[in-house]
Design a protein around this nucleic acid. Sequence first.
DNA 1: CGCTTGACTTAGACAGTGTCCATTGTAGGA
DNA 2: TCCTACAATGGACACTGTCTAAGTCAAGCG
Lengths: 136, 136
Amino acid sequence: MSDLLERLRGRGWRMTAQRRVVAEVLDGDHMHLTADEVHARAVDKLPEISRATVYNTLGEMVSLGEVIEVSTDHRAKRYDPNAHRPHQHLVCARCGAIRDVHPAGNLLGDLPDTERFGFTISDVEVTYRGICPNCA
Amino acid sequence: MSDLLERLRGRGWRMTAQRRVVAEVLDGDHMHLTADEVHARAVDKLPEISRATVYNTLGEMVSLGEVIEVSTDHRAKRYDPNAHRPHQHLVCARCGAIRDVHPAGNLLGDLPDTERFGFTISDVEVTYRGICPNCA
DNA sequence: CGCTTGACTTAGACAGTGTCCATTGTAGGA
DNA sequence: TCCTACAATGGACACTGTCTAAGTCAAGCG
Ligand SMILES: [Mn+2]
Ligand SMILES: [Mn+2]
Ligand SMILES: [Zn+2]
Ligand SMILES: [Zn+2]
């Protein structure tokens, strides 16, 4: 089942009921949940799990590169278990729906050397904004 | 001096000391300030200006398209008076320094039709991340 | 000019999101 | 089974942003 859980076990994580539940929630069908949304779903499976533990666990997963933090609006960060296939996000400006997208081309190459100001650039983050078919 | 102020006057804004000061701060040398940083600088010029007014004024300037909201980290929004020349941002992952950059190429064109899922896309937001010369 | 009025400002309460810490619990190895 | 280092807990706290009720004032008008 949980590939995410497998990878975490392989990294020497102490396996607790709480971490199992957080991993299960992330691997479920709902993508791009906020920490509090993850917590709400986790509570359904393990009523005594605390908010702090969910925040800690998500933060650790991000540090390990197993989960990605996404912030498409200026509100809560969202947690994305799709960390092993590089992708970007397409966001509906009206309802907030989020889709994974895979742009063609070399995004990093679009930035000329004269525009790099001596930075060593390691990452490009792109958010496409528009109106989804439902909202149109 | 303040081009920003001129444009706002032209839009029928009631001209108050508070709005003048916020516009002056934005047009100063420091770019990409947070609302509370704008407030701190505004207080130096007009001690009684309130936090709420700074938030309100910045929000109105954004609505009018005279200022852009930027969120490069997952913390406070930053306010960018450079609203009339489209650009993107380059951010130092260590110290948070922000530079304006002007990518070549058609950013929107990088997203194939098959990756648009029926959305009407109106905007692309790009953040380049790396390490600045100072931090390297 | 001085009045009038509706737009603007203010202080502070409140809400949403995230962090911290002292205490308690427990996974997993000896 | 026991130990102990690591993890979980709950609640206080910090940061960012929003809201409201009451007071203030810019600007148009006589
Ligand atoms: Mn994603
Ligand atoms: Mn800028
Ligand atoms: Zn929509
Ligand atoms: Zn730096």
